[in-house]
Computed example of a mutant assay.
Amino acid sequence: MPTPDFILELRATAGHQLLFLPGASAVVLDDEDRVLLGRRADNGRWALPSGIPEPGEQPATAVVREVYEETAVRCVPERIVLVHTAEPVTYPNKDVCQFVDICFRCRAVGGEARVNDEESLEVGWFPVDSLPELDEYALTRIKRAFEDGPTWFDSTIPE
């Protein structure tokens, strides 16, 4: 994923030290309750659409923008699925980040699922019982998106 300009500007003065950053991710469902996934260009793994809100941008607005930028699918947020602070990540260039993810369940309302930027190799809709290999955190978000319960707040979600 390309690093947003405002992060590059922060890094110019902050160096490699830990940056605590917001993130927004989406479990996007279509009319058949299939899940929208993209296969990431940076690591080749299937994942939920996600990204970093721009300064001043609301998380729900950011997730709608990110879903469209990555998949060409238009969506509307229905509810917050969970809020989770991940463990810090150290990138190959030694930058350290820690993300707090706000995951939304969204409903697709238009567009045709396709690769729409350089962040994805493939994009597709998947029945929940035929998902490709995903990490535990993605599976947790998908599971929570199908539940009717309240927003889930827990710091022990597997990565």
Results as ranks from 00 to 15, higher is better:
Pro2Trp: 07
Phe6Gly: 04
Phe6Pro: 04
Glu9Cys: 01
Arg11Gln: 03
Arg11Val: 11
Gly15Met: 08
Gln17Asn: 14
Leu18Trp: 13
Leu19Asn: 05
Leu21Tyr: 07
Leu21Phe: 08
Pro22Ala: 09
Pro22Thr: 08
Pro22Tyr: 02
Ser25His: 03
Val28Tyr: 06
Glu32Ala: 12
Glu32Tyr: 08
Leu37Tyr: 09
Gly38Glu: 13
Arg39Leu: 14
Arg39Val: 14
Arg40Lys: 11
Asp42Ser: 03
Asn43Glu: 04
Gly51Lys: 03
Glu54Trp: 10
Ala60Ser: 10
Ala62Val: 07
Ala62Phe: 04
Val63Asn: 03
Val64Phe: 04
Glu66His: 14
Val73Ile: 13
Val76His: 07
Arg79Ile: 06
Val83His: 02
Glu87Lys: 15
Val89Phe: 11
Thr90Lys: 12
Tyr91Phe: 15
Pro92Glu: 10
Asn93Phe: 08
Lys94Thr: 14
Val96His: 04
Asp101Tyr: 02
Asp101Arg: 03
Ile102Cys: 05
Ile102Lys: 05
Gly110Val: 02
Gly110Cys: 10
Ala113Met: 08
Ala113Pro: 11
Asn116Leu: 03
Glu118Gly: 11
Val123Glu: 00
Val123Leu: 09
Phe126Arg: 10
Leu131Gln: 07
Glu133Leu: 08
Leu134Met: 12
Asp135Val: 06
Asp135Ile: 12
Glu136Val: 13
Glu136Phe: 03
Ala138Phe: 01
Thr140Gly: 01
Arg141Lys: 14
Gly149Arg: 11
Gly149Ile: 05
Thr151Ser: 12
Trp152Tyr: 11
Phe153Ala: 03
Ser155Met: 12
Thr156Asn: 12
Ile157Val: 15
